[in-house]
Write a protein that binds this DNA or RNA. Structure first.
Length: 310
DNA sequence: GGTAGACCTGGACGC
DNA sequence: GCGTCCAGGTCTACC
C-alpha cells in the first residue's frame, strides 16, 4: 500500500483551474485526467521514482496518493516538489494583489501558473518549446521521459549530463538543441546554476534576466519565460504567438518590432504582474478555440495545438 | 547595434 | 506515398 499525504494549500487554491493554466500541464510526465480532474505524474525521489496522483475534494487541502510507501525524507522531498509545481508558495494575498492590478481575473480567481517540480525541468521544457511547433515540444518531452527518465520520470540533470548528443537527437528528437540541452544539464549537475540566488526576492529581475541569457539555448524569449517560471512576472516573453495575439486580439498593426513596442506599452500598467495579465488573455483566447483547458487531453492537444488552429 | 543565414523537426500541401 | 515548403527562437558571423 502506497503513502497518502494531505497537502495544505492556500485558501483560494483550485487544483483544476490552477493546474490547467499553462501548457506544461499537458507535457510528459504530467497527465491531467479530464474525467476525474486529477493530475498524475512521476517524481524523482531519493530512493527512486514514485508516481503520485493529486486530487482535491476539500477547499484548502489536496490529496497526494503514491504508488509506493515513502520514507520520511522522501515525503519531505515530495511535498517540496508538489508545492513548487503547484505554486503553493503564492498565497491568497498574492492572488489578491494580482487581482487588484488586473481585476479582469478576480471572478474566475485565476492567478497561478502551473510549472514543474524542479527548475531544471522548467528550463529544459522551455528549450524544447523554442523554434518549434507545439506537437514537437510534446514529442520531445515524451521521448526524453521514455528514453532517459527512470520509471517514466522527467530525466534528472545527472542522467542528461551523461547522455550522448546522438541519443538526444536520434531518440528524443530534440534536433540541434541536443548540445544545448546537454550543456545545460552539465551546468545544473555541477551546481553552477545558483537557484537560491535566482529565486531570492533580493535579486534584481534585470540581473536574473541577464544571467539567464548567458545560458546555452536561452535567448530573450526563453529567458523571459524562465523568469515567469521563477515567479518573476515583471516582463513578457515575446514570441510569434505574442505578436499574433497583438494583431488578432488587440488589433495592433505595424512591423513585428513596432508591435513588440506596442505590446510592452500595453502591458506596462500591470507592473509586476505583466506576464500574468498577458498570459491569461492568451489562455482565454485558446479556450475560446479549444474549449476549457481542463478538457484538453494530453494526446489530443499534441495535434490540436498548431498555428493553423489559430 | 543590427541583421542574414543556418540550425532541425514535423505538419501541410501538391502531385 | 513521396517530395517540397514552411514555421519556430537562438546563435554566429559579418557589416
Amino acid at each position: 500500500m502506497g503513502s497518502r499525504l494531505t497537502i495544505t494549500t492556500p485558501s483560494d487554491y483550485d487544483l483544476t483551474r490552477d493546474v490547467c493554466s499553462y501548457g506544461y500541464f499537458v507535457l510528459a510526465p504530467n497527465l491531467w485526467d479530464t474525467k476525474k480532474n486529477t493530475l498524475t505524474r512521476q517524481l524523482n525521489l531519493e530512493t527512486g521514482p514514485a508516481t503520485v496522483v493529486l486530487s482535491q475534494s476539500l477547499r484548502g487541502k489536496l490529496s497526494a496518493v503514491f504508488d509506493r510507501k515513502l520514507e520520511r525524507t522522501e515525503q519531505t522531498q515530495a511535498r517540496a516538489q508538489i508545492s513548487r509545481m503547484l505554486r503553493l508558495n503564492e498565497d491568497a494575498s498574492h492572488s489578491k494583489a494580482f487581482h487588484k492590478a488586473d481585476p479582469r481575473w478576480k471572478k474566475s480567481g485565476r492567478a497561478r501558473l502551473f510549472r514543474s517540480p524542479t527548475l531544471f525541468e522548467d528550463v529544459i521544457k522551455t528549450v524544447t518549446s523554442c523554434n518549434v511547433a507545439w506537437p514537437s515540444t510534446v514529442n520531445m518531452n515524451k521521448q526524453m521521459c521514455k528514453h532517459l527518465g527512470k520509471g517514466g520520470c522527467f530525466p534528472t540533470e545527472a542522467r542528461v549530463s551523461r547522455t550522448r548528443v546522438g541519443t538526444l537527437r536520434g531518440r528524443c528528437r530534440v534536433g540541434y538543441r541536443d548540445q544545448r540541452i546537454l550543456d545545460l544539464a552539465k551546468l545544473f549537475h555541477k551546481g553552477e546554476i545558483d537557484e537560491a540566488w535566482l529565486e531570492s526576492p533580493s535579486t534584481d529581475d534585470t540581473d536574473v534576466f541577464d544571467f539567464l541569457k548567458t545560458l546555452p539555448g536561452i535567448g530573450p524569449y526563453a529567458a523571459g519565460n524562465i523568469m515567469m517560471l521563477l515567479g518573476r512576472y515583471s516582463r513578457l516573453a515575446i514570441d510569434t504567438e505574442t505578436i499574433r495575439h497583438g494583431k488578432a486580439a488587440l488589433g495592433m498593426t505595424g512591423t513585428d518590432r513596432q508591435i513588440t513596442k506596442k505590446l510592452e506599452a500595453h502591458y506596462e500598467p500591470f507592473g509586476e504582474f505583466k506576464f500574468k495579465s498577458y498570459w491569461f488573455e492568451l489562455w482565454t483566447f485558446y479556450e475560446t478555440k479549444q474549449g476549457p483547458s481542463e478538457t484538453w487531453d494530453r494526446e489530443e492537444t499534441a495535434t490540436a495545438f498548431t498555428a493553423a488552429n489559430f
